[in-house]
Write a protein that binds this DNA or RNA. Structure first.
Lengths: 225, 225
DNA sequence: GTTGCTGATAATGTATACAAAACTGGCCAT
DNA sequence: ATGGCCAGTTTTGTATACATTATCAGCAAC
């Protein structure tokens, strides 16, 4: 199982972090389908820690709406229908657009260089015959993270953390053909231009378009759900 | 069920909720000034519960950025400068604008009636010689809550929960003169019109303007900080 | 005087025991 | 049959004890 989608199952991390990663993994892998109750003790057994860090993890998952609370206070795996996904992309478009605008005002030459370097890696990953999708995803995430840190808003970062669903991004990207991936890289370079020009509106517009294209790619890739 | 998430110690609520409300109160009242460490045991003594619900409360306050984590994992009271406040209002403007757009599409006649009734109460509170600011605030919050529920997006609701700072609203409103309060009520009625017409763009624009005016009222009311 | 170490101290992280609340099933009355 | 109620069981909420980690004062070496 080479799995473990996003940040790895860092054995060194705290018990709460491991619990979070593992439970989230269960949900995203579909092992815990929507509606499945998330019982603290059972999960504690699975993860191999006590209930305390599991509770911690569940609270985080609840904030990020992976889990929802029943009227009585029990947690169950949330059901994301296509409307939810569309809403996630809409919010991402707004918030990342805002982040891009802020980044355009604040980006330092060092950050610009980092972005250029990162996007070069993306272009390299998609230029070859069989695009290296894993590499694309990793660098793509890094690209967006750099922008987020350039935006210098802790609030934006925490809000987007629960919104940027790497699994969704992955499902989108795996359906991209090479032309799509190349277009994505091109949009990134447009973003860098906007940052270099310190043009907030331009940056916002490009980012918004970038994300909304991803939404439609995702919708085209999924039957209807 | 009179919600009451803002005002003080709801004796009936859970220990974690009381801890949350009380600690948040300490921060907002300035009893715990920015940079002050938030030690679990000390807070547990103050609130009169054990560390467990206090930890719970602190996690929530951390997500909402009332507290920030030092590199070593300790929590301290966050320092909100004027940029932070501006950022909060900017995000609120975006997200509540989005909520208004969604509400415009979805609002039911019953919800419209509720909004009209609520705004009538607001108008009544500000029409008198000495405006009833407390009443204004309560109904104002209810007004925005109705819109939020009409928008039918759990994500928006949870995101805005950490953003809608009643204390900030309060500091703004107490500096409003009667004309300002009346203008607020007028903007609300414009919103209702936009909802009734199911005009998403109109609703979004009015809401955005509504919030951005609040930002500038706030900035005018506070020296510079 | 400054730097770097080291051990005491104090804080958070985790496990577990106990309390309270919510679901479940069946029984009874209608 | 159906609806409501009650006890047993399960699940979450809270308290507390223990483990682990970060902080900081003091001291030694340079």
């Amino acid at each position: 199982m080479p799995d473990n989608t996003t940040s790895a199952s860092n054995a060194a991390a705290s018990a709460a972090d491991r619990a979070y990663a593992e439970i989230r993994g269960l949900i995203l892998a579909g092992d815990a389908s929507p509606g499945t109750p998330l019982r603290e003790e059972a999960l504690a057994d699975i993860v191999g820690v006590s209930r305390t860090p599991v509770r911690d993890a569940l609270r985080r998952l609840e904030v990020e709406l992976y889990a929802v609370r029943t009227p009585g206070g029990r947690l169950v795996v949330a059901d994301w229908d296509s409307d939810d996904v569309a809403e996630i992309f809409a919010l991402r478009a707004m918030l990342e657009g805002h982040a891009a605008a802020r980044a355009a005002r604040r980006a330092t030459p060092a950050q610009l260089a980092e972005l250029r370097h990162c996007n070069a890696a993306i272009e390299a990953a998609v230029a070859i015959e069989q695009p290296d999708v894993a590499r694309f995803l990793a660098e793509n995430r890094r690209f967006h993270d750099i922008i987020l840190s350039a935006s210098a808003s802790a609030r934006l970062s925490t809000m987007l953390a629960g919104l940027v669903e790497q699994p969704i991004v992955r499902r989108t990207a795996t359906r991209y053909d090479r032309a799509d991936l190349a277009r994505s890289a091109h949009e990134h370079s447009q973003l860098i231009q906007a940052f270099a020009a310190h043009d907030e509106d331009w940056a916002r517009a490009v980012m918004t378009a970038h994300i909304r294209r991803a939404l439609h790619a995702f919708q085209d890739a999924t039957p209807s759900k």
